[in-house]
Amino acid sequence: MIVRILLVILIILAILVVKEKNNLHLIMYFSIFSFTAASVYFLNYALDIALAEVAVGCAFVPLIYLITVSKQNVFTVLIDKEFLHGEDYQDNDLYKKLVFLLEDFCSYYTLELKVVTKRVRYYPTVQGIFRPGNIDLIVSLDEENNHLVITGNKSNIMIPRLDKMTRKYKNIDLIEVDEYEGLDE
């Protein structure tokens, strides 16, 4: 009798999981599901399985889901310090416009902006910088024309969206770097 009630609760939770869109709510529903399933196992005289299910489904798996989901809201921008003249790049007019634009972009898509400063030592190919440092965008200054040059990965879906936003500014150029399928090793 109690087992049937718990199974009906499990069905309701499964339907809620299928209908939900927010990632963090899904983790919560999954934890409750796992705990209820463990109590069903307990009522059927399978005690060690209940212990294993609680340990795995209520502690380990939601932890790794949380770590994954929390890494997905970050948009990383690398400022090429060498081209922006050392310390006073923050007063640059173009730079301020760019930061304003990026913050607007990130709040529209609910991302968190993270700015990293480093020296760019080699040409920004996809394999060179984008992959090891997990960077989405590289900003550098073209001194002759006073343009800001932004380089992004072409297969990243945020870059065409950023392209639409920056198209109306004449001083900002967006370059898209393509990824070739690597030579197999």
Partner: peptide, 27 residues
């Protein structure tokens, strides 16, 4: 529950939700 989780794998387009539905299937 098996069928609902399988339906969830067909209907959604989110990768994280696919993995959760696979876990529901195994449970």
């Amino acid at each position: 529950i098996f069928l609902i989780a399988a339906y969830g794998l067909i209907k959604d387009t989110n990768v994280v939700k696919s993995i959760i539905c696979l876990n529901l299937l195994q449970t």
